[in-house]
């Protein structure tokens, strides 16, 4: 993926992003603590990590569903965090998102055709007829039957079909960036493959860039060009998909890989060899490297000094004092 990171300016550039939520008068939830990365045009970046590591918060900040505490998000050359009012409205159609619970993200009382057409109404500049025509075309593009399905309500659809509806709705404004927050986690295996294949083909067809959040490493490996691993609000490692899966450098990445259950009885069962079972609280994250409390390779320095995210090979950056396979 070195081509994409070297050539033209990236579509999206996130720079030292911090998102904090006040818990009460004295305490703060440090959800995202200084995350920087870039996303090239047409690229798919995977974002993995345990629940509570801040991956969804990061995604929401990128699409401006919430305002970061500090840091910058450059999208098409503009810092979207500084935009207000009309300029922000103008950029929103290009930033779209789909969610894990597709059924809950649809209005249950509204026919799905209307929901799919809605973004065009919000955006303005389309009359009702052209909105409906566009919605019907998009339904076909995501594999729904526009004639039969347009006037139906969400409860008449399965979870996989609802996710297709959500994808159609997100693509109506022809976004450049689609953020997918665990889009297949609630789906059965047979349907999950349908949606993953659909996303891959739509990406080609509409020239999308994707941020793909998932806790399932096999899914991420299947769909992404590059992968970022997050732990307690920080990036541990970001690398091209081959490098990350073949030679993980961060002990946390290695632990995640070791814990993945593969459907292969000849492979020894996944192991959970992390020290302790608990992910520490983001209210009071550990000093030094945030992973040191669970790291099997932690040294005294790890609890004192926080490691920088530094380049260990072309396109691979790791935040660890003692990276595992620093070959290259």
């Amino acid at each position: 993926m070195s081509q994409t990171s070297a050539a033209p300016p990236p579509l999206l550039s996130v720079d030292r992003l911090v998102v904090e939520f006040p818990l009460d008068r004295r305490r703060t939830v440090h959800a995202v603590s200084g995350v920087s990365f870039r996303l090239g045009e047409g690229e798919t970046l995977g974002l993995v990590g345990e629940s509570g590591c801040g991956k969804s918060t990061l995604a929401r900040a990128v699409v401006q569903l919430l305002r970061p505490t500090s840091g910058k998000i450059w999208f098409r050359g503009e810092d979207v965090c500084r935009l207000r009012g009309e300029p922000l409205r103008a950029i929103r159609p290009h930033l779209q998102m789909i969610f894990q619970d597709a059924v809950a993200s649809l209005n249950p009382g509204r026919c799905v055709g209307g929901s799919i057409a809605e973004p065009l109404r919000v955006m303005g500049g389309h009359d009702r007829r052209s909105r409906d025509i566009a919605a019907r075309q998009m339904m076909v593009a995501v594999g729904l039957d526009a004639e039969r399905h347009f006037h139906r309500k969400p409860f008449e659809f399965s979870g996989g079909q609802c996710q297709r509806i959500c994808i159609a709705r997100a693509l109506m404004t022809r976004p450049q960036l689609l953020v997918c927050d665990e889009p297949v986690s609630a789906l059965d295996v047979s349907i999950q493959a349908q949606i993953l294949n659909l996303l891959a083909s739509l990406k080609e067809r509409y020239g999308l860039s994707l941020i793909f959040i998932s806790h399932d490493l096999a899914v991420v490996k299947n769909i992404c060009d590059r992968v970022a691993v997050m732990y307690l609000g920080k990036l541990c490692e970001i690398a091209a998909v081959d490098a990350l899966f073949n030679t993980p450098c961060h002990p946390y990445t290695a632990a995640l890989l070791a814990a993945h259950p593969e459907p292969d009885p000849d492979r020894p069962p996944a192991t959970g060899d992390l020290v302790g079972m608990e992910i520490p609280s983001p209210v009071d994250p550990p000093a030094g490297c945030r992973f040191h409390t669970r790291c099997p390779a932690a040294q005294p320095v790890c609890s004192v000094t926080e490691p920088d995210l530094r380049e260990v090979a072309t396109g691979s950056r790791v935040a660890c004092h003692f990276p595992l396979s620093a070959a290259g």
Binding site: S190, I191, A193, L196, N222, F245, D264
Partner: peptide
Amino acid sequence: ALLDAMPRLANPPRTPLKAIGGQP
């Protein structure tokens, strides 16, 4: 079909998945 539809770590990236058609 279930085994073929599962993404696996053992597969190279971008291995096309054989989805099971239709609905549950």
